[in-house]
Design a protein around this nucleic acid. Sequence first.
DNA 1: GCCAACGTTGGC
DNA 2: GCCAACGTTGGC
Length: 157
Amino acid sequence: MKSEPSECSIDDLAQAPMQTVPWIGVRNYQARNFMRDAMHPGDGVLFYHSSCPQPGIAGLAEVASAAYVDATQFNAQSPYFDPKSSPENPRWLHVDVRFLRKTRLLNLAEMRTAPALTGMRVLQAGNRLSITPVTEEEWAAVLEILQLPTAAPDTPG
DNA sequence: GCCAACGTTGGC
DNA sequence: GCCAACGTTGGC
């Protein structure tokens, strides 16, 4: 999941109440559908800093809720206001995201050099989605590059 | 600031 | 349903 660090960095996530933030403001149907259909509580999230001097993976997080209605779409004062949406027929959803840990920055250039990551959706030419799927293999490869255990130390197996 | 890529809009 | 125009994304 991409986030502009000027909006919400990995440090902001770590310092948020409950270390959890609502992923409000997604206004792209594909990204919305990933949250609605493919993401479930407990799923791992690679937290990616975008539109900044050092784009790349900055930490690990997890999905903390099912998708639910993004209230900002009804707020005319919000930058995420969507006049074509209505509470009776809401258009936009979001999940909550919970902090797991900060990592060293795995920057975009290094991601592109890793053979195991060449297929990552986020690295494909022209990709602009702020939320893209990560395969089990890609997740494991990222953890290996970062020299992190693939499971928490207190997790069996 | 540039620009390629892509999504959305709206006239027809 | 087509497609040109426009807006946005996001690395560089």
